[in-house]
Design a protein around this nucleic acid. Structure first.
Lengths: 142, 142
DNA sequence: GTCACTCCTGGAGTGCGCTCCAGGTCAAGG
DNA sequence: CCTTGACCTGGAGCGCACTCCAGGAGTGAC
């Protein structure tokens, strides 16, 4: 059971161009097999690897780093510790990034809270005046 | 109390070039004030806004969307609902992205688990043989 | 007055990750 | 036979978000 590039594209969610680009750029373990007429044929192992690549890419790993990982896998036995190190480091970065985004997200949610209050709480509470982000009065025309 | 661009850069974590670029591109609410010699002077309100921009950027909002938000704030009263909508939509996207990254992260952690087992559990358990990502034997040399 | 320093401007350049294109091959259907 | 359609290749092009550069001006220390 092997798939055409169009089918592989549908199954992985990557565009046909991206699949070819990943292959050219060495992100795949080996060139994809070809039919008699030179068309690519993806097998389940190819798709599985592409899914892993997608996983790494979607968590922010740069293409060149994915290639490094693929290089290690291609090199075979003896590189397992290096692969593990690479994945570990990436994991740390992803976690740090998640924390950062989460923190920024709550700042945004605070802002949303202020706006919501201003807009929908305006009928009941109309004193004080929330500034939000209006520029300080008179800063340009003193 | 106003700061030079170098000081603003240090306080916000953005590069000097980026601060100028954001201003040129309309991401700031208004042109930064200038000293007698034409040098930029950042006040606390400028920094506060830059911090908000950083918050939006760090959560993946494109520059053009930040500009749209700045445009709305600049437009003043009556745009609050639009601003709220924009923030809400961004919030949804950030949450979706967080979920996606979290899911991919656990896939990566499973992989790390397999490698760790293979490397450090090898002394105790040496049967079965985990495949990980080796290509199927004989796929290229049948 | 001459360094060194920080800042200014407009515009060019960079790195990334795709995405698109021209021109061509093969196979099947009408 | 001819068209249609899926695929191929090498290479160019694109959008984004910066980042860098050349050339210049003001300020202070010596």
């Amino acid at each position: 059971m092997s798939l055409t590039i169009a089918q592989a594209s549908a199954r992985t969610g990557l565009s046909i161009d991206t699949l070819r680009y990943y292959e050219r750029d060495g992100l795949l373990l080996r060139p994809v097999a070809r039919s008699a007429t030179g068309h690519r044929r993806y097998d389940e192992a190819d798709l599985e690897w592409v899914r892993l690549v997608t996983c790494l890419r979607a968590t922010g790993m740069p293409v060149r780093e994915v290639r490094r990982y693929a290089d290690l896998v291609r090199a075979g036995d003896g590189t397992e510790q290096d692969r593990l190190d690479l994945l570990h480091e990436h994991r740390e970065q992803v976690i740090a990034q998640l924390e950062q985004v989460t923190a920024h997200l709550s700042a945004i949610e605070r802002k949303i809270g202020l706006y919501t209050e201003k807009l929908h709480g305006a009928e009941t509470e109309r004193a004080g005046g929330l500034d939000l982000e209006r520029a300080p009065a008179g800063s340009l025309a003193p």
